[in-house]
Amino acid sequence: MTEALMLSTTRISTFEGARALTAATGFFFRRDGVLYLVTSRHVLQDAPGAHLPDRIEIVLHVDAQNLTRTVTVGIPLYRLGQAVWRQGADSGGEIDVAVIELEPAAVQGTVLHAFGPEHLQAALDAVPIGTPLLLVGFPLGFYDTLHHLPVARHAIVASAFGVRFQGEGYFLTDARMHRGSSGAPVVTRSASGGSMPWTLLGVHSARLDMAGRDPQEDDVLGLNSAWYADILMTLTAGAGAR
């Protein structure tokens, strides 16, 4: 049986009608008995990029012993013309994180693990620069297609944790990341033990680069934005609210 972290993450496929658009990453967060799918907001809507899906699909396991057995769950992104996801904003502007409340019937009989409030980092000053991280997801859509499991990339905290980088609600990670990883959980090992011995620090958003970088002379930065995971407490407040 694989470890819980690998079953906390799912591949997201986006669609506009019958047309497949993109692939991304999502993970599960449970609060007050309600299960949520977490991903980057731009996975669900990116108007400047003309990315406007109307539904997504996620893949869930149905047998803890035989991981080749899965089910695909479709989730409409609009109900009566209103978006089903919740997104947030703060003094720095929009936050690139969104959550969708999952219907119990949609996940009944499936095998998954979810982060919860107990996995969030309480003391921000307890995460020093260079802290080892894992980002678990589906880079360029690459994953174990037989067992439908994600892959992990190693990273470190690359900016002062707890400080909003350039006034935005994210910190930096140093990792080799690719498209398809948007929405991946950013975690560090926890000493608390249990079935999910990880602390959820952030939600991976995007790679960062310098506008003036000379592609012939300068390598890419290899830095990424990760939005602080405590936004999930705001986005999941009021279970059952739409």
Rank of each mutant, 00 (worst) to 15 (best):
Thr173Asn: 10
Glu16Met: 07
Arg11Met: 01
Glu118Phe: 00
Glu3Arg: 15
Asp209Ser: 13
His42Trp: 11
Ile231Val: 15
Leu134Ala: 13
Ser40Thr: 10
Arg41Thr: 00
Gly212Thr: 15
Asp218Lys: 08
Leu149Ser: 08
Thr72Lys: 10
Val111Gln: 09
Phe115Ile: 01
Gly130Phe: 10
Val157Cys: 03
Thr199Phe: 01
Ile58Val: 09
Thr68Gln: 08
Gly212Arg: 06
Gly212Ile: 08
Val34Asp: 00
Ser181Lys: 06
Thr68Pro: 03
Asp230Asn: 11
Pro104Cys: 05
Leu200Tyr: 03
Val107Trp: 12
Leu208Tyr: 00
Ala23Gln: 13
Ala237Tyr: 02
Ser91Leu: 14
Val107Ser: 15
Leu52Thr: 04
Tyr170Phe: 15
Ala175Tyr: 03
Thr70Val: 10
Thr131Tyr: 13
Leu7Tyr: 09
Arg153Tyr: 10
Gly180Cys: 11
Leu37Trp: 05
Leu52Ser: 04
Ala4Ser: 15
Glu168Met: 13
Gly194Asn: 09
Phe115Asn: 00
Ala126Cys: 06
Phe142Leu: 13
Asn224Gly: 09
Val84Ala: 04
Asp32Leu: 03
Gly26Leu: 07
Ala191Cys: 05
Ser225Leu: 02
His147Arg: 12
Gln65Ser: 05
Gly194Pro: 13
Ser190Thr: 01
Leu223Ala: 02
Glu101Val: 03
Thr236Phe: 01
Gly88Cys: 00
Val187Tyr: 00
Val59Ile: 13
Pro197Arg: 14
Leu232His: 03
Val71Leu: 04
Leu133Phe: 07
Ala241Gly: 06
Ile100Cys: 00
Val73Thr: 14
Thr10Phe: 07
Glu118Arg: 03
Val43Leu: 08
Tyr143Arg: 07
Arg11Ile: 07
His119Tyr: 04
Ser159Ala: 14
